[in-house]
């Protein structure tokens, strides 16, 4: 493989490996690496295949360069998240599941005691529109306002019953 062909192949692999980076950072990184290669070759004073091969070997694999970028995190890249967030604006906030959940938690709590709110909370957890944090907070609200006082009363009843017998 010729020297320039080796460099092109390396840069191609770097571009392919750097997909998780934001486009501007990706171009910047490729530019930096290209410049580094040219500087190293200028310092070596030769541009044959063996010198290029040695320079590229010292740089490391393109995948390693990309993964050593501090802001690369596992999962989809942040700029993809930002685009998804923009797209999410066009998705209606309320789906059938969310409406049913809120109805069961409000009207259902009055018309179908216990069953309504329980099913409502199940629907809340099935929904993808609320974050896990919001689902946890909603569940905690129900537990704190309803379950804890009821448990407290049951405990009081239990001790009252035990002391009266």
């Amino acid at each position: 493989m010729e020297a320039d062909e080796l460099i092109r192949d390396y840069i191609g692999r770097l571009e392919a490996a750097s997909w998780p980076l934001p486009p501007d950072r990706r171009a910047e990184l490729v530019g930096e690496v290209r410049e580094h290669i040219e500087t190293a070759l200028a310092e070596a004073g030769r541009r044959d295949a063996v010198t290029v091969h040695n320079v590229l070997e010292r740089l490391g694999r393109p995948e390693e360069i990309v993964s050593s970028e501090a802001d690369v995190e596992p999962g989809p890249p942040r700029w993809v998240d930002a685009r998804l967030a923009d797209a999410a604006v066009s998705i209606p906030a309320w789906g059938g599941l969310e409406i049913a959940a809120v109805l069961l938690l409000t009207v259902g709590a009055v018309l179908l005691p216990l069953f309504g709110p329980a099913l409502g909370l199940v629907l809340v957890w099935l929904s993808t529109r609320w974050t896990t944090r919001e689902k946890v907070i909603a569940s905690v609200i129900v537990v704190v306002i309803f379950v804890l006082p009821v448990l407290g009363l049951l405990a009081v009843d239990g001790t009252a019953g035990a002391s009266s017998s």
């Binding site: 906030a93 309320w94 969310e98 959940a101 809120v102 069961l104 938690l105 409000t106 259902g108 709590a109 009055v110 005691p113 216990l114 309504g116 709110p117 409502g120 909370l121 809340v124 529109r129 609320w130 974050t131 919001e134 907070i137 909603a138 569940s139 609200i141 129900v142 537990v143 704190v144 306002i145 309803f146 379950v147 006082p149 009821v150 009363l153 049951l154 009843d157």
Partner: peptide, 30 residues
């Protein structure tokens, strides 16, 4: 155990949770 208390507390708890969820969705839309 006062059954009336359950009748009051349960809807109250569920409605409070529902209000929180509605507000959470509404805030995200803004």
């Amino acid at each position: 155990m006062d059954i009336d208390l359950i009748r009051v507390l349960l809807p109250l708890a569920a409605i409070a949770a529902a209000i929180f969820l509605v507000v959470a969705l509404a805030r995200r839309r803004r």
